[in-house]
Simulated scan of single mutants.
Amino acid sequence: MEEAGAQQQGAAFPAPPHYFQRFTAENLNLLEKARSDPDNPDVSKRLDELPFPILALEPPPPVKKGVYWLFGRPWPVQDSLATLEEQGIEQLYPKGPIDRVKELKKLNHSAVFNFLELVHTLSTSPSEFATKVDQIRVIFINMHHILNEYRPHQARETLRLMMEDQLNRKKQETVAMRETCANLRKQLAALKALKQERLPVPGLEPDVEMTAAASAPDGTTLISPQEGLDVKSHRNSENEDRSQLYSSAATSDPASRKNAEAMARMMDLCDDIQ
């Protein structure tokens, strides 16, 4: 049974521990009642009937020092690189500040030399190969330990590159948004100008007024004939100027008023984005 538990702890995707079945809604409600009213006799009776202490449902305090176990392996709380001496491995390079590149080259030459000696040993005395294999293993562990000392620097550089990439991407998105907003403002201004141009001008013939109200210079239909009639019906007199006609149409015609409000909101939105 213990071997099966050890295999579960060392598995890549271990099963949940058996005590997860304790965390039912009923037991959690009982825990809340025990906190709020511990002297209640009914609560005390139900606590006595449980096969485990109710405080076992409380999360354990965070581990602040020492080690914790994860997937059957101990991990230090303070993430630090253990020295070769702490791991029981012979250190082949000097202690203290070193030139890591220089030491890695030395260890690489030693590994190649020991490999050649291993080949020679296998050809002459195969029974003595274990010593050379162990020496090569120690050399590679030393090289791996030196490389692991670069991990904090690698993590900082990786984080810096990620932040720079995010910053550049946000700058590009901001530039694209501002360009889109500028183009939108130009289009809104052009639409506003066309809106003013399509209104009937005093003194024109009725057919000319309907044509100006219904189409743009490029032949694109701007408003329907019915909307043109609505604009004409709200003219106070033929002596009113063009701005008064536009103001009257925008005030009396719901469609024109909605268009004007929509354009104003779009202009305000562009100002906020910029």
Rank of each mutant, 00 (worst) to 15 (best):
G5N: 11
A6H: 04
Q7D: 08
Q9C: 04
P16K: 09
P17N: 07
P17F: 02
Q21M: 05
Q21V: 11
A25F: 04
N27C: 07
L28E: 08
N29E: 15
L30K: 02
L30F: 03
K33W: 10
A34I: 03
A34F: 04
D37H: 09
D37L: 07
D37E: 10
D42E: 13
V43C: 06
K45M: 13
L47Q: 05
P51I: 04
F52L: 03
I54T: 02
A56I: 01
E58T: 00
P59Q: 06
P62K: 02
P62C: 03
K64H: 07
G66Q: 02
V67L: 07
W69G: 06
W69L: 15
P74M: 11
Q78C: 11
L84D: 00
L84P: 00
E86I: 04
G88A: 03
I89P: 00
E90T: 09
E90L: 10
L92K: 03
Y93L: 02
P97M: 04
I98R: 09
D99Q: 04
R100P: 01
V101A: 05
E103R: 00
L104Y: 00
H109Q: 13
H109L: 11
F113R: 13
L116D: 15
L122E: 10
S123C: 14
Q135H: 12
R137F: 00
R137Y: 00
V138K: 05
F140N: 09
N148W: 01
N148C: 12
A155F: 06
M163A: 14
D165A: 15
Q166L: 15
L167M: 13
K171W: 08
K171D: 06
K171R: 15
K171F: 09
Q172A: 13
Q172G: 10
T174C: 05
M177C: 04
R178M: 09
C181K: 01
A182Q: 12
N183D: 07
R185H: 03
R185W: 01
A189G: 08
A190Q: 10
A190L: 08
K192H: 13
K192N: 08
L194C: 13
Q196N: 15
R198P: 01
P200N: 04
P200V: 08
V201K: 11
P202R: 07
P206C: 04
M210V: 07
A213S: 09
S215D: 08
S215R: 14
P217H: 07
D218W: 04
T221N: 10
P225Q: 07
Q226L: 14
V231A: 14
K232S: 11
K232F: 10
R235H: 14
R235F: 14
N236L: 15
E238F: 09
N239H: 15
N239R: 13
N239V: 14
Q244R: 14
Q244D: 12
S247I: 06
S248T: 13
S252L: 12
P254I: 03
P254D: 10
S256F: 06
S256W: 02
K258H: 06
N259T: 12
E261L: 09
A262F: 12
M263L: 15
R265K: 15
R265C: 05
M266Q: 14
M266L: 15
D268E: 14
L269N: 14
C270G: 10
C270P: 01
C270H: 02
D271M: 04
Q274N: 15
Q274W: 05
